[in-house]
């Protein structure tokens, strides 16, 4: 362990702090936090720069560009810039900022990165299908007592537990 590393917060305290941030978001904005929407916008902006016609004519992604406003000029995008900065502040002040690949002892760097990419694709797809990810649906919608968000959250845990035995090698 890095001698400069400091312990994490008690999970309940970290959670309560996170909840206060979410509460502040609701009080200020009337909607909650998110993240996959911003990542999607970055993807759409990139794809739009390469193949504008394909995006504009797409029944789903076209909605991101139809307004004519800059694709990245969006609340979620600025929020995720903040998430990055907040994560950096937390990691650096906690002594946990370190270049590396987080993996279990029984998997190589290549294998781990391959799985990270594959899992990312699954999540990106699923987040569009479910209209949000763990931040935008489970956390935000859950706090607003939306039934669909609670159903989504239990489905996430179900999916995670169902596949966990298959990828055990990666982590343990």
């Amino acid at each position: 362990m890095n001698p400069q590393e400091r312990p994490l917060w008690n999970p309940y305290v970290a959670g309560a702090f996170l909840g206060l941030v979410l509460l502040a978001t609701y009080l200020l904005m009337g909607f909650g936090l998110g993240s996959s929407a911003a990542v999607t916008r970055v993807a759409v902006a990139g794809a739009h720069a390469v193949a504008p016609a394909a995006i504009e004519n797409n029944g789903y992604l076209g909605a991101y560009v139809s307004s004519g406003a800059p694709i990245l000029e969006d609340w979620m995008v600025f929020e995720v810039i903040g998430v990055f900065l907040g994560g950096l502040l937390g990691a650096y002040t906690g002594g946990r900022l370190k270049k590396g690949v987080d993996r279990g002892p029984r998997i190589g760097v290549g294998g781990r990165l391959g799985l990270a990419l594959a899992g990312g694709v699954l999540m990106g797809f699923a987040a569009r299908l479910a209209r949000g990810c763990t931040s935008g649906q489970a956390l935000t919608g859950g706090a607003a007592l939306a039934v669909g968000s609670w159903v989504f959250m239990f489905a996430v845990f179900a999916g995670g537990y169902a596949l966990a035995p298959l990828v055990r090698r990666q982590w343990r």
């Binding site: 400069q4 600025f78 810039i81 903040g82 900065l85 950096l88 502040l89 650096y92 002040t93």
Partner: peptide, 29 residues
């Protein structure tokens, strides 16, 4: 506010101060 005040000034200011006071390893970020 996002790129200049918070990201370009306030956060680096805090990171610098923390680096100086706690003697942390510097970061390129």
């Amino acid at each position: 506010w996002s790129l200049v005040v918070v990201g370009g000034l306030a956060v680096p200011l805090v990171l610098n101060v923390v680096e100086m006071r706690r003697g942390l390893r510097p970061t390129l970020l």
